[in-house]
Design a binder for these strands. Sequence first.
DNA 1: TAGATTGTTAATCGATTAACAATC
DNA 2: TAGATTGTTAATCGATTAACAATC
Lengths: 219, 219
Amino acid sequence: MDDVRGAVKPANEKVISPAVIKRLPRYYRYLGDLLKNGVVRISSKELSERMNVTASQIRQDLNNFGGFGQQGYGYNVEFLYREMGKILGLDKTNNIIIIGAGNLGQALANNQEFASNGFSIVGLFDVNPRLVGMAVRGVEVYDIDMLEDFVRDHEVMIAALTLPKSKAPAIAEKLYSLGIKALWNFAPVDFNLPDDVLVENVHLSESIMTLSYRIHSRN
Amino acid sequence: MDDVRGAVKPANEKVISPAVIKRLPRYYRYLGDLLKNGVVRISSKELSERMNVTASQIRQDLNNFGGFGQQGYGYNVEFLYREMGKILGLDKTNNIIIIGAGNLGQALANNQEFASNGFSIVGLFDVNPRLVGMAVRGVEVYDIDMLEDFVRDHEVMIAALTLPKSKAPAIAEKLYSLGIKALWNFAPVDFNLPDDVLVENVHLSESIMTLSYRIHSRN
DNA sequence: TAGATTGTTAATCGATTAACAATC
DNA sequence: TAGATTGTTAATCGATTAACAATC
């Protein structure tokens, strides 16, 4: 195994490190900006200067997925942008439901950037009767009791959890039992679910606490 | 330098790695939950099982800041919780302003968790005249033109940027020139500011893209 | 062709885990 | 005291950077 000859292109089986995965969307964003600005080609060196990383890291990262560049030339921006989009799964339909239609849930539903990257909010859910029936950017807020039926009838990829900490674990388990593929969790709690469901946590309190740490530990 | 004898306790000068800093708030959260549940003492082993990390890592991390435990006993939950709070600067006043009073800005202003950890939202700012004058949880929304005066008259530590990408860089520079200590940036853009201002980015699009990657690269 | 820049291997650096003596 | 568990050093593992031959 790992024979140089055999390695010509199994490609798919390659395990990508978490550190690399976390950097991919940032490359994608920079490439999109370059494309919008009419830049046709870019070298790892020039991109590294814009992004404040090393050129070496860029080349290493990209080469996990194949050789997208050309010696003496660099990378074609549009081609690389598209390829990165495919790698990130943005060419696929990514339907999202949002559990909890408060400010945060509505903020996600209103976010234009998700929409323009192939993510589609297909429904919001809440327990609050004053929110149920409302529409956020044309997407309806349903009663949480409709969740089961809705997930059965629609191809939902991701559930965003923007509800109180106290209610999050039970809903997470329910969603797992309904076969949801991934949870995007904004509640300040960790779930204990089997790892056939993917979980991405956005712990805002933890984010601001690291900022507080850095402010107060300044020397 | 780094003489073993000399190392007895300069303590303050110790450089803490980013990896460690990022984990601190999570320790703090688990300790707070334990405290609320009446747990008096905990060993690194037991905590490691709850948190899904190694006991070794917990002991290494904590020992960056001092010896909080006791051999044969473990750690006193309340004591460690308080100490972590101090390390994170949560015992200090952390005044925050929010630039952009849309859904996301309001979500932050409404977040109870920040308040209970010593963060205090002291003002929101927006260009939209329909939002100006409103109050979110008792905090007023000011016209963005009031920003300069406000920052001069109040001790603002952190500015949260929850405004459109297009307007973020200019506001960031303005805040920098007003001497703000730290930016908590939710706009999908990176700033190029001198490093005497701290920046913590929350790039939600990047977060959900890594989730998309993981969903679609599943083998 | 000559110059530029990639793809990739090797070297370095940093972070995590293991191990155990110190000690409560 | 004996048992438990820390604090800390040493070993391992993984990620980043440097270097350069391959090649456009």
